[in-house]
Design a protein around this nucleic acid. Sequence first.
DNA 1: CGCCTATTTGATCTGATTCAAACAATGTGG
DNA 2: CCACATTGTTTGAATCAGATCAAATAGGCG
Lengths: 261, 261
Amino acid sequence: MEHTLSALSWKGASLMSPSDNPAELLIRKLEWLGPLSARQREVLRRLEAVRVSVDAHQDIAREGDRPSSVTLLLAGFACRYKLVSDGKRQITSFHIPGDIPDLSSLFIPVMDHSFCSLAPSELAVIPHAAMLALFHEQPQVAHLFWRDTLVDAAVFCEWMVGIGRRSAFTRVAHLFCELIVRMQAVGLCSDYSVELPVTQTDIADALGLSTVHVNRTLQEIRGAGLIKFSRGRLVALDWEGLCDAGEFEQSYLHRQRTKTV
Amino acid sequence: MEHTLSALSWKGASLMSPSDNPAELLIRKLEWLGPLSARQREVLRRLEAVRVSVDAHQDIAREGDRPSSVTLLLAGFACRYKLVSDGKRQITSFHIPGDIPDLSSLFIPVMDHSFCSLAPSELAVIPHAAMLALFHEQPQVAHLFWRDTLVDAAVFCEWMVGIGRRSAFTRVAHLFCELIVRMQAVGLCSDYSVELPVTQTDIADALGLSTVHVNRTLQEIRGAGLIKFSRGRLVALDWEGLCDAGEFEQSYLHRQRTKTV
DNA sequence: CGCCTATTTGATCTGATTCAAACAATGTGG
DNA sequence: CCACATTGTTTGAATCAGATCAAATAGGCG
């Protein structure tokens, strides 16, 4: 977690999944939130962006920064987090390809949290000016992005409920359900199996638990035959059972299109 | 909590603070987030709205509803909350005059949480259509509202950190700091004293604690000479001390204008 | 192989919950 | 204005979910 964006190496050519065009990923994500016209897709394809690769565990933006661009995650895995005085960390969200974790920096100039990669990742860096010009030209597209920030807040809200009022067992199951559904939506899940490059400590920091307790809870969930989880891969062995265990109701994710890959 | 909006009595004439013009309250709130032109203020003053009074503890919108209007809180006190399967409640935010707790319904048609009054309150009900027309005519105003939803999310985020990683003592102190600062911004706080019509159970549900523990924690905070809190009035006796105890850094509230009343 | 990081296990402790009951405040109807 | 009901606050005691501390094991990798 040593470098901020300006210090990262720029590798314009080496994209992890070369088939994935950044603009198409963004279009897919937005269409998942609402309809886009041909004209709007065209404008999105012309959006100015720079491609950047980062290693795992690199801060991409830090609390207090004043970014002048936003970051579209193209490949990899990331999270937002805050640190508290005694060194404890709370992860406030996980991010997957298609997400723009620092979209809020467009309207809230100074970052109130940090944002880092959890796996080697590919980013598209888009200047604020380009985004604002896009919004000016296509207010309907701005509304879709707005919608995206609202869904983001809905996820915060659901996490809050989990941390505040649910048991460790339920919380872990709920998190796994959420991640699987979100990964499905961008085609990164088949057969309820997803790449999940997080440590048990990351999960603990996301759910407000200790690492030791997460470890024991995982054993419980495994013991119940609901999941496999090792070496960065999560598999839901019993999807229905996992949803029940996690009291998972996916409506809070507000998907417009229901499409399972 | 028995009536939804459609069933509420309409009292167009009886506003609690007659001096407060709804439009001016809204303008003040938005100018707190960023600048408005004279033209924009003019448009805001013509915004179509209906005034409604509600008793304490009335649901104004419920999870699953599809509202066709948003609600500007003019006077009183409100909260958003979610219920979980075993009947537990998590309050996800408190709302004070100037807030539009259900603004998200503009872009997320179905409510994923409920929203209720905690004290007798005055509301201005504004049709979605009127808001969208406003956004169409004045995209800059839309951006201010967007900014508002982002600050809202920042507050969620901060609450999450508290519930996940802070002690009961710190959490309660932090909540009190937040409410005092927000009330100051709309002129509802003088001498660090605010009307706070919430029960200890409400506080418990907001902070992910039990009522009993909130009670004991309040005694601790009182014992430390930091606050008085009884019969719906909170007074910070030692503001600096309270901020320290709550590890309160108000930057997450992203106030543009720093004006203390 | 040796190093580093992540996972796992055991033992102990504690902040917070739960249950139950008393008490205080407020409001209501007669 | 009092009796009573209702809701909120306070107290005590027992319990527990999850934290903490410490140490052992397992993987991954240069």
